[in-house]
Amino acid sequence: MSAITAHKDPKLPPPVALPEDASWVGALSLFDAQAAETLVAVVRTLYPHDGLPERIYRRTVFHFDAMASKAPAAAQVFAEFIDMADSALPLPFRELSEGYRVQVLKTLEASAPFRLVQRSAVRFLYDDVEVWQAFGYEGASVHLGGYVNRGFNDLDWLPDPPAGV
């Protein structure tokens, strides 16, 4: 990976700082620890990037919690989803191995609660500036003068097209 630095637009709030230990759930307004940790395990199973630290997945669940706090209907769907995930096999979801977790999620794939959780996971996980940094997306650029002098045409492993093509 070439050295890049990811930037969020300066008008937007910085990523929320969560405690690095189990007390992070105290930052949530709706989910209890059991619900929150289950959702973290679900998001990691959906989008397993082994190199990403736990705090990024927790921030994704922090966004779920904010969504659910604002919309009672969404809160209800998250609760249904957690029940479904926890009751599918004799162990709670977060205690299952990855293979069993995948098996459970596949059985839920067609359900509306799965859809909300999966789409929300994509929405928030890949919008995290720490994920951008890890996967090479630099993000906001106007405040840095765009990319015109920062590599918009620096690809050097293919021939350059003729000028004015």
């Binding site: 090479g136 997306y137 630099e138 990319y147 918009f152 045409n153 690809l155």
Partner: peptide, 9 residues
């Protein structure tokens, strides 16, 4: 195999 950085430009 190599970087593109399609978001630039």
């Amino acid at each position: 195999d190599k970087p593109v950085h399609m978001h630039r430009g």
